[in-house]
Design a protein around this nucleic acid. Sequence first.
DNA 1: CCAGTCAAACAGCGCG
DNA 2: CGCGCTGTTTGACTGG
Length: 257
Amino acid sequence: MGSDHDDISNTVLVLGLGFSSTPVQNPSQADDQRPNNKPLIFEPSLSLGLCGETYRNNQVEKESDWLVLYREESGASSFSNASVKREREMGSEEVEIERVWGRVSDEDDDGANARKKLRLNKVQSALLEESFKQHSTLNPKQKQELARKLNLRPRQVEVWFQNRRARTKLKQTEVDCELLKKCYETLTDENRRLQKEVQDLKALKLAQPLYMATLTMCPSCERISGNGGGDTSNSPLTMAPKTHFLRNPFSNPSTAC
DNA sequence: CCAGTCAAACAGCGCG
DNA sequence: CGCGCTGTTTGACTGG
């Protein structure tokens, strides 16, 4: 009866109002794909802006260890595809150590490998992620420092942050898009239902023009009033609750009084 | 800096 | 098992 109407209305209202402020957990596929990585949680916010600002403090704890590991293994400037694949398959720390990786620097490009694409190792990725969570943009000093820590060129750090921002934004847009689709569907259903209700009421009004045109009753005080507040005490008519409570618009009595 | 794009690296699948 | 194919991820570049 009227209760389901109210339920639907409330649902729609909540969805509409909650949209801009409801935080949505979005387990990031991209960030969790590397099997060897610590579970870095990217939590895009549904609220406008400020995405990627949340982070877990305890992820910083290993940074120094990673850097030690990183510094121990860094120094190589060539790049090995086979070792990269092996690392991903085995997913162990020791492979990380024996893996040959590094940067394609301006200095040591030999021409043949100039177009070889660098793949950041997990230490580098983790530190970049950590840094990104703290601030999604870098000032020149931060960029230099990060590049120095990671043995990368500042340009590479800069590019990584640009890509990270862009892909975070894209991901957030996709989440928002899905939410808007759901919201649209809900509102469409609600609109359809209300249209039908209007039609029903119109049909009812045609069938019983006198009642519908002249009388209304508040369900809380059960007083009948005519149009323009006229006196109904001498009216021979009695109330027809059936018409009034078809969908119970008085679920909130104050609206009728 | 951002949006758009390219292309290397990689993952996953089916097939012989 | 390995090969080819396809789709995805991601480092890098370009133009505005």
